[in-house]
């Protein structure tokens, strides 16, 4: 194995809550995953899941409204347990309203959550600790 590749990481970054930040979210995620020993297909899927969750913050927690608020994304990998945390100060998420598209329901919308649930093992919404309002946790067991 390449000695420059790590299997344990913990990195976080703030982004302005805006659709224009999504490319920066992807760049950050790609940069973090470039340091770990995962296959490229899985890295691409994880970047998609992270970008979809960030997009949901822009679309739902902030309802596409312009803001100076920031969201924080934290990516941690510890002995094969990947945890991705999202923190925001938007509208509190009502977990009962979070639903993904049904497989045979061909319409735009709900696809982002559908992708996240396909890619990750678990999706948990929590109340954020101050100053945050929402804390979303995505987890996945990584098999090397």
């Amino acid at each position: 194995m390449n000695s420059s590749v790590e299997n344990n990481i913990s990195e976080k970054k703030d982004f302005v809550v805006s659709s224009s930040s999504l490319k920066d979210v992807r760049s950050f995620s790609r940069e973090v995953f470039s340091k770990v020993n995962l296959n490229q297909d899985l890295k691409d899927e994880l970047v998609l899941a992270i970008a979809e969750a960030a997009q949901n913050i822009v679309k739902h927690a902030y309802q596409n409204q312009e803001t100076d608020d920031k969201m924080e994304i934290k990516i941690s990998l510890d002995n094969g347990e990947l945890e991705i945390g999202f923190f925001d100060k938007g509208r509190p998420v009502d977990n009962s309203n979070v639903r993904h598209r049904k497989i045979d329901d061909v319409k735009p919308g709900g696809l982002g959550t559908f992708f996240i649930k396909q890619i990750m093992d678990a999706v948990v919404f929590k109340e954020g600790e101050k100053p945050w309002i929402n804390h979303l946790i995505l987890t996945k067991k990584i098999n090397y």
Binding site: P108, G112, F115
Partner: peptide
């Protein structure tokens, strides 16, 4: 090189 659910939604809307 990259398309997310929003891009897929454009494909669905265009098709429909």
């Amino acid at each position: 090189q990259y398309m997310d659910s929003s891009g897929i939604s454009v494909l669905i809307e265009s098709h429909q």
